[in-house]
């Protein structure tokens, strides 16, 4: 299974959820091939996709938040795993054992957790550009959130 097939599988499993996708190839490939309004494509903030999702979910009433992380990103954000499980958060890590965005440097194995779903993917990447500008991504994502009327009265 390649990265795109894995992401498509996750998207199909959560048709009504908000998505937070980590920076690097995860956001690049998903942004280019799917470009959905319910996706928040991170361009930076390495290791923080799960924490962003936790913050989102802490305010949203009745919407699931799905995180798609790479294993390099997940290693950098490992201490955020201590906040799991959280109802309504679904955490997926695409595992290929390397920092592929920066040239496939090997990385240690991620620990196992019952709250983390690992999907093993093949090495290899699509020739995809950076996702849209941050302001464009945010505008679409916020419009989608508003259309769902899921924001708590804060």
């Amino acid at each position: 299974m390649n990265r795109i097939e894995a992401i498509r599988q996750i998207i199909d499993s959560h048709p009504d959820a908000a998505f937070v996708l980590s920076n690097g190839l995860t956001s690049r490939e998903a942004g280019y091939l799917f470009g959905q309004n319910n996706h928040l494509y991170l361009l930076h903030g390495m290791g923080e996709a799960l924490s962003v999702a936790i913050g989102l979910r802490s305010v949203l009433n009745n919407i699931d938040v799905v995180v798609v992380d790479g294993d390099g990103n997940a290693l950098m954000g490992l201490s955020a795993w201590s906040m799991l499980p959280i109802q309504g958060i679904y955490y997926y890590v695409l595992v290929n054992g390397v920092y592929e965005t920066t040239g496939a440097q090997p990385i240690p194995c991620l620990p196992d957790s019952v709250h983390v779903t690992k999907l093993y993917i093949d090495l290899g990447k699509q020739n995809t550009p950076n996702p849209s500008l941050p302001c464009e991504t945010m505008k679409k994502f916020e419009a989608w959130l508003n259309s769902k009327m899921v924001v708590k009265d804060v």
């Binding site: 962003v52 999702a53 913050g55």
Partner: peptide, 10 residues
């Protein structure tokens, strides 16, 4: 990062 997510949600 959590505060960023919370801010997006209002």
């Amino acid at each position: 990062a959590m505060a960023f997510g919370a801010r997006i949600a209002g």
